[in-house]
Each structure stands twice: as C-alpha cells, then as structure tokens.
C-alpha cells in the first residue's frame, strides 16, 4: 500500500483571482510583506500495490482526470503506508 500526496498548482501564466482576493485580505489585516498568493489543491490517494509502476500510474491519472495540464502543474510524493 502506498500513500500518494499530489500537489496541484495553477500554472504561472494563469491568473489566480482567488489568490489575489486572499492577498488583498492579508494586506488589509496588516501582512503587507505578502507579495503573492497562489491557491492550489492537495489530493491524497491510497493505492494498493500492483504490477504497474506507481509513478506511471499516478502520472496517467493526473493527465486523465486529476489535473488539467492546460492550466495546472502538479507534483507528487509517494510514501509507504500500512493497509487499514
């Protein structure tokens, strides 16, 4: 069993109005040091051991469903996990 942690972020070329709104609030709260806020997604998958290479499997799922590579980048970490 593997625990896969996937981080999805908006590509740099894509504007993030949500991030801008949050930055505006942070500034109003006095955190003027904040120069940029980008909001992304975090996904956690528990994947049973199988024949297919886990990296290839995660990449495939990211491309087919979990992310839209027109606007998003992703990276992931794989950890050993114990089945529950």
């Amino acid at each position: 069993m593997k625990k896969v942690k996937i981080y999805v972020t908006l590509r740099e070329s894509v504007l993030d109005p949500q991030g801008s709104a949050v930055m505006g609030s942070l500034h109003k709260m006095g955190y003027g040091q904040v120069e940029d806020v980008r909001i992304g997604k975090y996904l956690e998958l528990m994947i049973a051991d199988g024949e297919k290479d886990i990296d290839a499997l995660v990449n495939e799922m990211c491309h087919r469903l979990l992310t839209n590579t027109v606007i998003e980048d992703y990276r992931f970490e794989i950890e050993e996990a114990v089945s529950q």
């Binding site: 894509v14 504007l15 109005p17 949500q18 709104a21 839209n68 027109v70 606007i71």
Partner: peptide, 10 residues
C-alpha cells in the same frame, strides 16, 4: 481547446 476558469471577479 482551452479551459474555463473562475470569473475574474469570483
């Protein structure tokens, strides 16, 4: 082609 994002004013 392309994608639909959140409206700029959210």
């Amino acid at each position: 082609p392309g994608v639909l994002l959140r409206n700029k004013n959210l």
